[in-house]
């Protein structure tokens, strides 16, 4: 499905990028603006469904996860959110904002060692977003941002499970370096819109809003709004 437009009246906008790229900040600002414009917006983020939370926590803590089970558990999370959180608002004609989407799996899980075609097959039920941003940032900048905010890198974020290095900073550099390379291939394959995440936050946001506006040109609002408009015209 990732290759064909989805059939729903809503709009699906996603952000991608490595940790520390600033994508979540940009999505929050976009969310505020869309709501202020009177839109009905629903927000969802990666790895947040209750269904696999326990298995994920247990697997991570005990280091039970292999790259394949790690990938499949994230796919369960995604499929669960798609069914309960993403598709219903899209059917209702709302705007859905997703912090990370299937592309995250194509970058991260492949960097961990799963087959790129296999993981694309696993996620082939995912609807194609109307707009997908990729926030491109060099490793060192991302690392500086993450370490500025909190003192320690998270185990999986640094790719420590992959065993590239025992030093978390070095591991982060190596692992996220692979992830960055893979994102570049995704930009080509799936037409992600690249935003230079080195720029000022507000100028990045201007570009994002401009592109979103363009993508919303054919957007009529929620199903309820469309129905009310039709009533008034009648």
């Amino acid at each position: 499905m990732l290759t064909e437009p989805h059939p729903y009246p809503g709009k699906l906008i996603v952000v991608e990028g490595i940790d520390g790229s600033g994508k979540s900040t940009q999505l929050t600002l976009l969310h505020r603006w869309l709501v202020s414009q009177g839109h009905k917006v629903f927000f969802t983020e990666w790895n947040s469904s209750a269904l696999v939370r326990r298995a994920m926590r247990r697997g991570k803590k005990k280091d039970l996860l292999t790259p394949t089970t790690f990938s499949l558990l994230h796919a369960v999370d995604f499929a669960d959110r798609l069914n309960y959180k993403i598709v219903p608002p899209l059917k209702a004609g709302m705007i859905v904002l997703a912090d990370r989407y299937a592309y995250t799996a194509f970058a991260r899980d492949v960097a961990r060692g799963v087959h790129p075609e296999w993981v694309r097959g696993v996620y082939s039920f995912a609807p194609r977003p109307d707009l997908a941003f990729y926030f491109r940032v060099p490793i060192d900048v991302a690392l500086d941002r993450l370490l500025g905010g909190r003192a320690k890198l998270k185990y999986h974020e640094a790719g420590m499970d992959v065993g590239l290095s025992r030093d978390p900073h070095e591991s982060f550099r190596l692992f996220q370096g692979r992830v960055l390379e893979l994102y570049e291939t995704l930009v080509q394959q799936f037409g992600l819109k690249v935003i230079d995440a080195m720029g000022y936050i507000d100028s990045q946001q201007q570009i994002v809003r401009r592109m979103v506006s363009r993508s919303l040109r054919d957007y009529a609002g929620t199903v309820a709004e469309v129905a009310i408009k039709a009533l008034h015209h009648a």
């Binding site: 696999v52 039970l64 089970t69 499929a79 669960d80």
Partner: peptide
């Protein structure tokens, strides 16, 4: 879909 993915995760494990 989630059913199948859970089974696949169990299987892979």
């Amino acid at each position: 879909t989630t059913f199948s993915l859970l089974y696949a995760a169990d299987f892979a494990d």
